[in-house]
């Protein structure tokens, strides 16, 4: 029984990180933006949802506001950086998630610092039912992202990734497309963050950690850029690989770093030997 419960727990996390990976694909895969701040948006969604829900705002509404706040932060972050070479976006987004972590640790009055925020209401108490909700949302996000990428808007985004100058010459406002897609990507990341906070009914500054960043990046690249089903498959693979460590008596305190080492090695091997991943349709810009 305990094993089944554990599997359901992992499936819940897989669903939530699946949403996060699919949303990362929107900015990195479909539009070619080197967005390293995705855990930042994830954390913004989690903290906003947590703070609102703890102060009496209905949970569904808190989730929605959390996603919108995340959307806005994506727009603000994109404003100075999306006009520049893409490395600068990488710089700014990495700095962004780092700074959020430092704010969450130091703004004790709001976030209780390293103690974190416990007692966040759950969407539903039972883990199995929670899993159904998570997967329901995952499917909706999957379809939405699929529709976005098939739309005229999504096609322009792919054109920007492949040749921004050509898209500009064709009269497309590439800056607007890039900033909107970063916002939408952040929106879904914020939604995933809110779900995560509600699922654990706890959030602390470690949500901005690099462990999740390497997890979703490896999942994205293993599955392949610009492929929604690739991201889905990628996160399932990566969430499964480190799990045996728990059952062979690997020391608990080493599991966190061990996961990061495994993901790092996988990512490096993929980049060297099969940079397009399984279903990838594009190269990293």
């Amino acid at each position: 029984m305990a094993f089944i419960n554990y599997v359901i727990h992992i499936l819940n996390l897989t669903g939530i990180f699946g949403i996060l990976t699919i949303s990362l694909n929107l900015s990195v895969g479909f539009t070619g933006l080197l967005n390293l701040g995705h855990v930042g948006f994830f954390g913004i969604g989690a903290y906003t949802t947590a703070l609102l829900a703890l102060n009496g705002v209905p949970l569904i509404l808190s989730l929605l506001i959390g996603s919108v706040v995340s959307f806005i932060s994506g727009i603000i972050l994109g404003l100075p950086t999306l006009r520049l070479k893409s490395d600068y976006l990488a710089l700014a987004t990495l700095g962004f998630s780092f700074i959020l972590s430092s704010l969450a640790k130091n703004w004790i009055g709001l976030t209780r610092g390293a103690l974190g925020l416990p007692g966040i209401p759950r969407l539903i108490h039972d883990n199995t039912l929670f899993l159904w909700i998570v997967f329901g949302i995952l499917i909706v996000v999957y379809l939405l992202v699929f529709l976005i990428t098939r739309s005229r808007f999504g096609k322009v985004c792919e054109a920007i990734r492949d040749d921004e100058l050509a898209a500009k010459i064709l009269g497309k406002n590439t800056f607007l497309h890039k900033i909107l897609i970063l916002g939408i990507s952040a929106f879904f990341a914020g939604l995933a963050g809110g779900l995560f906070a509600s699922y654990l009914s706890f959030v602390d500054p470690s949500i901005f950690g690099l462990g999740d960043l390497i997890l979703i990046f490896s999942a994205l690249i293993i599955g392949g850029l610009a492929s929604v089903k690739g991201s889905f498959l990628g996160i399932i693979i990566l969430m499964t690989i480190p799990e045996p460590l728990r059952f062979i008596g690997f020391p608990i305190y080493l599991i966190g770093p061990a996961r990061e080492i495994i993901f790092g090695i996988i990512l490096l091997l993929i980049l060297i030997h099969k940079p397009r991943g399984i279903f990838g349709r594009a190269d990293i810009s």
């Binding site: 390293l36 990061e260 790092g264 990512l267 980049l271």
Partner: peptide
């Protein structure tokens, strides 16, 4: 590989060395 790939590889290395 493009400079973006090298950049992502360096992120992977950063996190890997950190965990190591």
């Amino acid at each position: 590989s493009t400079s973006g790939v090298l950049l992502i590889a360096s992120i992977a290395l950063m996190i890997l060395l950190n965990a190591l």
